[in-house]
């Protein structure tokens, strides 16, 4: 069943990156949807022109890496307005950001950084998610983070934080299964508790990716096929929370398009088994 370009189809998609733009547009592979990093298309010119062409053929999801929802500095109005302009242009099927921070007074750290899950932080992030949703006039999906440290000041788990955040702000959840797996291995996070805490209705999308290891720490590098343990966890998550649009992310050492599509096909198979 071909999905409308304006609804988020419950099938597998791929993260579309620059090395594959041309091949995807020339061969138009059978593909449920694609996701791109929002910031790469701010402004105009060739990037935006390319994305408009992609949009003619596929549903597009915009995935931001720069909003810094938990930063303690004021929300970057220019960044938000660039995103808003891109949304109006592309009409994405979903818009997502990460549950993280990236800015301190005077400088920005262009990464996805963890913070203590406190009630104070929850109030703060709720206000900012609301601000973003009001500007974009749509629901924002917020993604759980892969983390290499945890803060002793945290008053709740990331799962509790996300569940409360969705209830207060009306945002959705982008459940990154690989991030959860990384946190289980790195920080001893309880995967079962996380899955039980997350409200199924709020989950609108899944992410899958590969990680790497550095001195015993799993690092969310998106440079590898999805590992078997993550596939297993994904199947388990789907049994509890139900199938959703699922993305294969690959950002470093990006493989040939067929390999990426093959990973998406594996996810598609699991989605279909879950529907049966």
């Amino acid at each position: 069943m071909p999905a409308s370009k304006y609804t988020f189809p419950c099938v597998a998609g791929i993260g579309l990156r620059a090395p594959h733009y041309r091949e995807v547009l020339e061969t138009l592979p059978e593909l449920g949807w694609v996701e791109v990093h929002s910031e790469n298309f701010f402004g105009g010119g060739a990037p935006l022109h390319t994305l408009r062409k992609v949009r003619e053929h596929y549903p597009v999801s915009l995935h931001g890496v720069g909003m810094g929802l938990a930063s303690a500095t004021p929300l970057d109005e220019k960044h938000l307005s660039d995103l808003s302009q891109l949304c109006n242009d592309i009409q994405p099927v979903a818009v997502s950001e990460h549950l993280c921070w990236n800015a301190a007074t005077g400088f920005v750290i262009n990464d996805l950084l963890p913070f203590p899950y406190t009630r104070e932080a929850l109030d703060h992030v709720t206000r900012r998610v609301t601000q973003v949703q009001e500007k974009l006039k749509r629901q924002l999906l917020v993604e759980n983070l892969s983390s290499y440290i945890s803060f002793s000041q945290s008053e709740m788990t990331e799962g509790d934080f996300l569940a409360e955040l969705t209830q207060r702000s009306g945002c959705g959840i982008l459940f990154d299964v690989e991030n959860l797996y990384v946190n289980v291995r790195n920080l001893g996070v309880d995967a079962e508790a996380f899955i039980k805490t997350i409200p199924a209705d709020a989950v609108k999308e899944y992410h899958l990716a590969g990680f790497s290891e550095r001195d015993g720490c799993l690092v969310d590098t998106h440079n590898h096929p999805v590992y078997n343990e993550v596939w297993d966890l994904y199947e388990h998550v789907l049994k509890h929370l139900g199938p959703r649009p699922t993305l294969i992310e690959w950002d470093t050492d990006i493989p040939a398009l067929p390999e990426l599509l093959n990973e998406a096909a594996k996810a598609q198979l699991i989605i279909e088994q879950c529907h049966d």
Binding site: D111, S150, L187, G188, R214, D215, G216, C217, V219
Partner: peptide, 18 residues
């Protein structure tokens, strides 16, 4: 204040990753 109770690596390893 950053907890350091990870089974597989030290806090310094984590900071170096960042």
């Amino acid at each position: 204040q950053i907890t350091n109770c990870y089974a597989n690596y030290s806090q310094n390893t984590a900071i170096e990753v960042y």
